[in-house]
Design a binder for these strands. Structure first.
Length: 954
RNA sequence: GGGUGUUUAGCUCAGUUGGUAGAGCGCUACCCUUACAAGGUAGAUGUCGGCGGUUCAAUCCCGUCAACACCCACCA
């Protein structure tokens, strides 16, 4: 029994397992999508030689092992799966390689928290013990996100899952590090780095977030007494607590106010230390007082100034941003903000604080911990990026960006690239393969512990690990067996064809993969880069935990109770909490019914545009995706129920190819061909803006609203039944082939139903069925046009009834008259459909217009309807055509007719004016001029005819 | 401060090698017609962000302004 509701919960799981068991996701699986091989000679397929040209490869952007599937993942993985399935059906051997990222800081934090909850202080563990704990955690929870990706229907090759800390991938990382070091592109240096005092590690520039307008703070004016005089200079600073690290005060050389002070010294308040007054162009005269305190150890600009003027650098904070031993005793151990408070208090007591003005301060925060970044002078490893960037800029022409404008941003970044700080002071990650002799400061970079270091206590391995993005940058290489250039997978699948990703990691990740790949292998890692839109909430705000406005894809698929829906909001406690809770209680008191993966996928693709955002609300998934999949399911059900009723012999004759097609079949097929072209073009350009609409139009409008309605008579007629059904199924088959990449489960299930009843036909799962090619079919334009006309007739007559306030289910007699015998035949031919779809009682040919009837003119056919009398009784004409009652024309219709006439004459006037314009005739495109002329003639003809008939009617 | 993107029906978005605009949702009215009420049918709605320019003709090309969004940048 086929239920009118698609039971995705049962079916999606069943079908996914079926795909898995048959190795369809493996590029080297034992199957063929090849168009040419009609027979299923598996043995031959297997031995077929593989070449790079036949493959299509992508790597999944590896989600963090700590991750849970969010809408961005759902969108990105849906897009990749649509592409992967499309390419697979086109006959490519598709490798879509999945995996996860070890996510250094994120994972370390999660495990620390877990240990905390078990009352274990991670600091009581050795590094080895802690790392072992992380592995334990990873084994247990690290696969969750991959399972969630499976539930989307993704056709990744799960036999090739990779993890950035797999043994082989670690080897790849070490190899890359060593090579960069040997090529002198890696160096260790004391540099000012972004320091996160919470995670206690350095961060790369790209890991810093800043708010556009800065954050609210204050600018303080502080008096520094000039040594040997009663004078003061007043410096302006937002960070008074760093004054202990000041090693100069700087003024602009052009600033007349302070010229007398050059070469003098000032006494640092509280610190009671003397520092010089220097002059430098860098100082802005109009900022604050025009006097700058210089703190080389805690500010990037000051660091540069310090270098230039050979100033000392005094670090006053420790790794956790607490004041260290370089500050007066009473401030030691305070964190930076408490210290600021105390410093201000002391300054005030000494009357040295002379100003405090509110100011927006450009603060950087860690993208992970959100803590305010401290600049810190420390030993770190860096990669010289300029040479790598230069090479990439020279080769970027080979990259295709979708959407194209990303190329501009790309170059801007590459041109302004700085060295990349790659060392991180954490435990979880790729430990830097370098050994340092603590006595001689000699450094050896090696894949294994060097002989010199063995058993020699002077040598210690570098404690730092690499930035997570270092291994990510190698992902397309390392997942395929690199650095082994002879690895089978590497030869076949590198470079990849396409990468699909969120736009915010264009520099973190995409660019760095290109830099590395080009450097190590002299090739770009992929040809096409697709940036998917960012998923926002219905009001256009970023989805985030702290706003509680996220939509969980897992809940969309499987459903959620009202409590489930409320939880993230209650956790987040946003400002509009009451409003949000209220909305959920109003709309989802019964919870949210899961819609399945297909509906989720369709909704996301349908809403995708070339804009940079998608706005999503919970009911989009029912309104768009579920409605659509339900529609397709029920349309199929109409045919499948009939198919199920066929006898064995009848079923035997079903071929699933068009047999003696009617005009309806050809019309439908024509629309399918059109859709094939549009879909293929869209997917090849990674343009998803119209894709959903194409499917919607084809399946809902063309197939359901018209085709199925038009063939119903044929299905119910014993004589034409089997042919009609066969052709309809043939067309349905084409439709599900087209729709499979988007909605794989439901289409596969429909396919199953079809072939279950037709064991004599060679069945093939849709996933490996060849996609339709464009422009294969030839169509008889005349027959296609005929259906267009039928549609017009039915639509106009339906509308006419409506406008005259005739209830739809009220059957009315219909008469027609035409002088041309071909038109006469046409009407006779479509009679059945006219009666059924238009809901008329009878259709009769008449020689004279029935008395009191109303006219509907379509082409050469005059249709006449006789309306029910005002008293409610029927006034239908008898056979032969004399109408009894007087027709009552509804007010709606008069108004509409009037408007139509008005529009028509306006249009005619416009065209007349245009064609009367000599310049248009002279300079205009001749084709356009001609077509405008034709338009005018046909419109005038129409107007004349209507006017004439209206006169006749009266 | 520099850059990118967006601005079309109430909402979300298509569109045009330049010839006075489309879809889905929503809304209104009617209809439980045996695939689907998670359905059907009909309908209303736009100075295509503002101002200039090019052109016979601009929603589309050029200039400019504005609003919104995002990215980059070391103003204490």
């Amino acid at each position: 029994m086929i239920d009118s509701k698609f039971d995705f919960k049962l079916i999606e799981k069943k079908i996914y397992d079926f795909w898995l068991e048959n190795d369809f996701f493996k590029p080297d699986g034992n199957y063929s999508t090849s168009r040419s091989s009609t027979d299923e000679n598996k043995g031959r397929e297997q031995t077929r030689e593989q070449s790079k040209e036949q493959t299509f490869s992508m790597v999944i952007p590896p989600p963090n092992v700590t991750g849970r599937l969010h809408m961005g993942h759902a969108l990105n993985n849906t897009i990749q799966d649509v592409v992967a399935r499309f390419k697979r059906m086109l006959g490519y051997r598709v490798l879509w390689l999945p995996g996860t990222d070890h996510a250094g800081i994120a994972t370390q934090t999660v495990v620390k928290k877990k240990l905390d909850s078990e009352n274990v202080d991670y600091r009581s563990l050795t590094r080895e013990e802690f790392v072992a704990e992380v592995w334990k955690w990873k084994k247990k929870y690290g696969g969750i996100i991959l399972e969630q990706i499976k539930s989307l229907g993704c056709s990744c090759d799960w036999s090739r899952v990779r993890f950035t800390m797999d043994e082989k991938l670690i080897a790849a990382v070490n190899h890359a590090f060593k090579r960069l070091y040997e090529d002198k592109l890696l160096y260790k240096g004391k540099r000012m780095v972004n320091w996160c005092p919470v995670d206690m590690t350095a961060l790369s520039d790209d890991e810093i977030e800043k708010q556009e307008k800065g954050e609210q703070g204050f600018l303080y004016d502080i008096k520094y007494p000039v040594v040997g005089s009663e004078a003061f200079v007043v410096v302006s600073t937002t960070r008074p607590e760093t004054l202990f690290g000041d090693t100069a005060v700087a003024v602009n050389p052009g600033d007349a106010r302070y010229r007398s002070l050059w070469g003098k010294r000032v006494l640092l308040p509280l610190a009671e230390r003397e520092v010089p007054i220097i002059s430098d162009e860098y100082v802005k005269m109009d900022f604050g007082t025009g006097c700058l305190k210089v703190t080389p150890a805690h500010d990037l600009n000051d660091f540069a100034l310090g270098k230039k003027h050979k100033l000392r650098s005094i670090t006053v904070m420790d790794e956790a941003a607490k004041m260290n031993e370089n500050v007066p005793r009473e401030f030691r151990g305070l964190d930076r903000y408490s210290c600021r408070k105390k410093v201000l208090q002391r300054l005030q007591e000494k009357n040295l604080l002379v100003g405090k003005t509110p100011k927006m301060i450009p603060l950087g925060r860690s993208y992970r911990s959100k803590a305010v970044i401290e600049y810190r002078l420390s030993d770190q490893w860096f990669i010289k990026m300029k040479p790598l960037a230069k090479k990439l800029m020279e080769n970027s022409a080979e990259l295709n960006f979708y959407p194209a404008f990303y190329r501009k941003i790309w170059f801007y970044w590459l041109e302004n690239i700085d060295d990349w700080c790659i060392s991180r002071q954490i435990w979880w990650g790729h430990q830097i393969p370098a050994w340092v002799n603590e006595k001689t400061h000699e450094v050896i970079v090696a894949l294994e512990e060097p002989a010199a270091a063995k058993g020699n206590g002077d040598w210690v391995r570098e404690a730092d690990v690499l930035d997570t993005w270092f291994s990510s940058a190698l992902w397309p290489l390392s997942t395929l067996g690199w650095p082994d250039g002879q690895a089978e997978d590497f030869k076949l699948y590198f470079p990849n064809d396409t990468i699909s990703t969120a736009k915010d990691i264009i520099f973190f990740w995409i660019a760095r993969m290109c830099l590395f790949s080009l450097y190590f292998e002299d090739r770009l890692p992929f040809k096409n880069i697709y940036f998917h839109p960012t998923v926002m909430d219905s009001k256009g705000r970023v989805m985030s935990k702290s706003k509680g406005n996220g939509i969980d894809p897992y809940q969309i698929i499987n459903g959620a109770t009202m409590e489930d829906l409320k939880k993230p909001i209650l956790d987040a406690k946003p400002n509009n909490q009451a409003e949000m809770i209220n909305e959920i209680e109003r709309k989802y008191s019964q919870g949210f019914t899961g819609v399945g993966a297909d509906a989720l996928r369709f909704t996301l693709i349908f809403l995708s545009s070339n804009k940079q955002f998608i706005n999503l609300s919970l009911d989009d998934f029912t309104r768009i995706g579920r409605r659509f999949t339900n529609k397709l399911w029920n349309a199929s059900r109409l045919l499948l129920l009939d198919l199920a009723k066929l006898s064995a012999e009848e079923a035997e004759r079903v071929s699933l190819t068009l047999q003696d097609p009617t005009e309806y079949d050809l019309w439908m097929d024509f629309h399918i061909s059109g859709a094939v072209q549009k879909i293929t073009a869209s997917l090849e350009k990674y343009d998803f803006s119209n894709l959903g609409e194409v499917y919607y139009g084809l399946i809902w409008n063309d197939f359901c609203d018209w085709y199925l309605e038009l063939i119903k008579n044929g299905l119910r007629n014993q004589e034409t039944k089997s042919r009609t059904l066969n052709n309809a199924l043939a067309l349905l088959k084409k439709i599900i082939v087209l729709a499979h990449p988007l909605i794989p489960f439901i289409t596969e299930e429909i396919n199953n139903f079809i072939f279950k009843k037709l064991p004599h036909l060679p069945s093939k799962p849709l996933i490996i069925t060849p996609f339709l090619t464009k422009g294969e079919e030839r169509h008889d334009q005349k027959l296609v046009q005929k259906v267009v006309l039928i549609k017009e007739v039915i639509a106009k007559l339906r509308a006419f009834k409506k406008h005259n306030a005739i209830r739809e289910n009220q059957k009315v007699d219909l008469f027609f008259r035409c002088s041309d015998s071909r038109w006469q035949a046409f009407v006779e031919e479509i009679k059945d459909n006219l009666l059924r779809i238009g809901y008329f009682k009878s259709l009769t040919s008449v020689a004279e217009k029935p008395k009191g009837a109303s006219l509907v003119l379509i082409e050469q056919i005059e249709f006449y309807l006789v309306f029910p009398r005002e008293d409610g009784g029927e006034a239908g004409g008898e056979a032969g055509g004399e109408a009894k009652g007087e027709a009552k024309r509804g007010p709606n219709d008069q108004a509409k007719q009037g408007r139509e006439l008005e529009r028509l004459s306006l249009r005619i006037a416009y065209l007349k004016k245009k064609l009367g314009n000599e310049n248009f005739l002279k300079k205009g495109n001749p084709q356009v001029v001609a077509s405008e002329r034709e338009k005018l003639i046909s419109l005038e003809e129409k107007l004349r005819k209507i006017a004439q008939l209206n006169k006749e009617m009266k």
